[in-house]
Amino acid sequence: MKEQLHANKVQLTYATVLSWTSSLGMIFIVAGYLVYVFQLLPSAVSPAEIATQWHLRASEFHKVVPVPSGWDWVSQLGRGDVLSYASIVYLSSVTMICLAVIIPLFFKEKDHIYTIIAALQVLVLVFAATGIISGGH
């Protein structure tokens, strides 16, 4: 195809990784949600309990409803509510995965500026994901 001639190797690699990881993400979030709402696995909090409090501010909501947030769910993957939350965490990691893949490609092409920019971008996202700045768990 004519258009593909104008996308370089790094860009095509990013696109391929993005296609796979994002499709997987969509499957995960729908599957996780269905497992949770149909109570196929036990959950700490039922959807009905959440619905009684979802009018509250996030900070107040978490004082009364023990739903997962940040990384506090990692040891409880067998729970339906955690599985659904984990699928969203995965979706939020897709961009990081794609960027991490292209750093070595930029480096191989001796494109030092974009090796640094892509590495810094991954660092920013990892920093956000750790929750250090947002006071996460």
Partner: peptide, 13 residues
């Protein structure tokens, strides 16, 4: 989105 996740402002429901 990561800030919202850490602040507990994301509900899968």
């Amino acid at each position: 989105a990561w800030v919202y996740l850490h602040k507990g402002a994301v509900l899968p429901l």
